[in-house]
Amino acid sequence: MDRGTVGSANMGRLQVEVRSEGPSAVVTPVGELDHHTAELLREPLEQCLADGLARLVIDCARLDFCDSTGLNVLLGARLKAEAAGGGVHLAGMQPVVARVFEITGADAVFTVHDTLDQALATD
């Protein structure tokens, strides 16, 4: 297990891709979302909201791991997106990530889709 310090050594553990698709910001985290890498996701989510994109679609298909800190980043983004008239949609969760949402009950507060296409087709 990587026990390195926060900083550039951990940046390779999570990469975040962002693109606009119609009224949605599609945010794709790739790798591990944990307390070392959470800021790498928080910053682009907040930038999307600042840019007026309140409908956030998180493509979780390439997210290998999510701990409670990562979950809190997504919950915080959900609250801010809803306050701006939008929401957060999660798509394509791997079983190991989906399990974290099930155990914590967070799957009940997010709109969860099997695929990215389904998430983009939903209002």
Rank of each mutant, 00 (worst) to 15 (best):
R3C: 06
G4A: 15
T5E: 13
T5R: 12
G7N: 05
G7S: 05
G7R: 14
M11P: 09
R13M: 10
Q15G: 11
V16E: 10
V16M: 08
R19L: 06
S20F: 09
E21H: 15
G22C: 12
P23S: 12
V26P: 02
V30D: 04
V30M: 01
G31H: 00
H36Y: 09
T37I: 00
E39V: 04
E39F: 02
L40V: 02
L40F: 11
L40Q: 13
L41M: 01
R42W: 07
E43A: 04
L45M: 02
E46F: 09
L49H: 07
A50Q: 02
A50L: 02
L53Y: 13
L53V: 03
R55K: 06
R55S: 04
R55E: 08
V57Y: 10
C60A: 10
A61M: 10
R62E: 07
D64L: 03
C66H: 12
D67H: 07
D67M: 04
N72T: 12
G76Y: 03
G76D: 04
A77V: 11
A77W: 04
R78T: 12
L79K: 15
A81G: 03
A91R: 10
A91P: 09
A91L: 08
G92M: 07
M93T: 13
Q94T: 00
Q94M: 09
P95A: 01
V97T: 13
V97A: 08
F101A: 05
E102Y: 13
E102C: 07
A106T: 15
A106F: 03
A106R: 12
A106K: 09
D107R: 13
V109M: 03
T111K: 14
V112R: 09
H113N: 02
T115V: 01
L116H: 12
D117I: 05
D117L: 07
L120Y: 11
T122P: 03
D123R: 11
